[in-house]
């Protein structure tokens, strides 16, 4: 584990050289720990793949805190994917790009659907827009570089493939991923505020997702 400063108030911690299941288990342990502890000196934290960002209160000694927290993180027991929440998300596979994507990879549409709905994916980060999950675990046969020209509007709930990840558009936004289908599940809903504001987000980084084909 090592860290690099990110401006005067933040530290970017690199957990490992590689992004694999073991690294993600450590990242998950750190996120769950920080969510539980609510450390006063840390005003915000986030994770993506093999990195964790800690943003400290103005005036804190970043170098001292970064070393201190890295020691604490090293002592945490990794949290395996199997121990995290599993969300089953229904998908109607009627996306605009599914036929083209199938043809591109020499597969039938039915095969694209079965290959996409077979894995249990891991949420490696939420980003791009609020609650948008980058899901790892995509069948290598389905990996597809992003579209050359992004669409100006992709509807919320679109299930799509971008590079080696699949994901779900959380709000209507521009987007360059290939659209496979749609889910009626609202993965981000600003009106969902019970029991607290965190309820707006269906998924947390580190959770698992399984897509279930629906009519």
């Amino acid at each position: 584990m090592r860290w690099t400063p990110c401006g005067p108030h933040a530290a970017l911690i690199e957990l490992a050289e590689t992004d694999d299941a073991a690294t993600r288990a450590r990242s998950r342990a750190i996120l769950r720990f920080l969510e539980r502890e609510r450390v006063r000196a840390i005003v915000d934290f986030s994770a993506a793949f093999d990195k964790v960002l800690l943003e400290f209160r103005t005036g804190e000694d970043v170098a001292a805190l970064a070393s201190q927290w890295m020691r604490k993180f090293s002592a945490l027991k990794p949290v395996d994917a199997a121990a995290s929440a599993l969300h089953e998300i229904p998908v109607v596979y009627d996306g605009e790009d599914i036929a083209e994507l199938a043809e591109r990879h020499g597969l039938g549409v039915g095969e694209v659907i079965s290959r996409h709905s077979a894995p249990i994916y891991e949420v490696v980060l939420l980003g791009f827009s609020p609650g948008f999950p980058y899901l790892a675990g995509l069948d290598p046969k389905l990996c597809t570089p992003r579209r050359a020209s992004p669409r100006p509007r992709v509807p919320a709930g679109s299930v799509a493939i971008g590079g080696s990840h699949t994901g779900i558009y959380s709000i209507e936004s521009p987007g360059g991923w290939h659209l496979l289908g749609t889910t009626p599940v609202r993965i981000f809903d600003p009106a969902r505020r019970e029991p607290d504001d965190e309820a707006m987000f269906l998924l947390r980084a580190g959770d698992r997702v399984k897509f279930v084909p629906a009519e």
Partner: peptide
């Protein structure tokens, strides 16, 4: 502040 891990910028 405090929602970056959900993809929410400040």
């Amino acid at each position: 502040i405090g929602w970056k891990r959900f993809g929410v910028p400040p």
